[in-house]
Design a protein around this nucleic acid. Structure first.
Length: 286
DNA sequence: CACCATGTTCCTTG
DNA sequence: CCAAGGAACATGGT
């Protein structure tokens, strides 16, 4: 479920629910996701601590807690991987099959469910250091973005997935942003002209902002309990909301481009599916 | 059974 | 040393 917009919407959803709540106990069902922290460390640090803020960095959630026994606020890092979910569940409910970690909050539990267990729930903050600028902040400057693209002949789409260049873009929004900017995804990063870099930067911000707005306005089924519910990436909430097509190009191979009706094409870049309109996103800079 | 999937990291190759 | 490519991780859906 997770690229920057989905994580941002999740953070906004969770914050009011978790604020002022105190962790009574910690259960780790799959220690892989807490690595390199240990269950014992998590317990020692979190039990008795109270949530006081939740923030986001790239695709990471950062839970800030106040612990009576620690001078400094405690920080807990979450990452959803490919299949992670986080939500509150009434204590009476059984833990779902793929629960990896759960925090007892009294009347309910904070559950981290992750089928494939590619996610993280850890006290180790090191992964944050490798992240590039936040795309929606002023740190994501045209100058820095240009510099990051200038020294690589790799396809520009692959560069967008590089979290050290800009944090939070994933496989879906990479294709979406390139479509908006009308740039061919396979174009070597270092051949983009300044106008294209600028267009791409603008497109990235636009795509992410739009997705956040959409996600923030939909009544989402956080626990994903509905049947046939893929959840997240919006439009699939358990509501009758008429869903507009979620994406302009992603997962739309052979379907007509919204702008010119040309069939959308799919290709592999870095062994990941990439979608684009061969007419709107031509190879050559113009 | 084969292949694909929202992500990241590690290893190998050049 | 670095860039680039691919496998690995683990499970489920089609």
């Amino acid at each position: 479920m997770p690229e920057l917009p989905e994580v941002e919407v999740l953070v906004r959803h969770l914050e009011p629910l978790l604020l002022e709540r105190t962790v009574l106990s910690v259960d780790v069902q799959h220690r892989k996701v807490v690595r390199p922290s240990t269950t014992r460390q998590l317990r020692r640090t979190l039990v008795g601590a109270t949530f006081h803020k939740i923030t986001r960095r790239g695709k990471f959630l950062v839970f800030h807690l106040i612990s009576p026994q620690a001078a400094q606020p405690v920080q807990l890092l979450g990452h959803l991987g490919m299949t992670g979910r986080m939500y509150l569940l009434p204590s009476a409910n059984p833990l779902p099959r793929h629960t990896t970690v759960s925090l007892d909050l009294g009347s309910c539990r904070f559950v981290f469910e992750d089928t494939r267990r590619f996610g993280r729930f850890t006290l180790d903050l090191a992964p944050l250091k490798a992240l590039g600028p936040e795309p929606l902040s002023d740190d994501f400057t045209l100058r820095a973005f240009t510099a990051a693209l200038q020294h690589s002949r790799q396809p520009v789409k692959i560069k967008l997935l590089d979290q050290s260049i800009v944090a939070g873009i994933g496989n879906i929004y990479a294709s979406e942003a390139l479509f908006l900017a009308r740039i061919h995804p396979a174009l070597p990063a270092n051949v983009l002209v300044p106008r294209q870099v600028q267009a791409l930067r603008t497109a990235i911000r636009r795509v992410l902002n739009t997705a956040i707005r959409l996600g923030g306005s939909l009544p989402l089924d956080w626990a994903g309990t509905g049947p046939n519910d893929k959840l997240f990436y919006y439009g699939r909430a358990n509501t009758t909301t008429r869903r507009k097509e979620r994406f302009r190009v992603y997962d739309r191979a052979n379907r007509p481009c919204h702008r010119c009706r040309t069939a959308i094409r799919q290709l592999l870049l870095g062994s990941r599916s990439t979608y684009f309109c061969p007419h709107c996103q031509r190879q050559i800079a113009c």
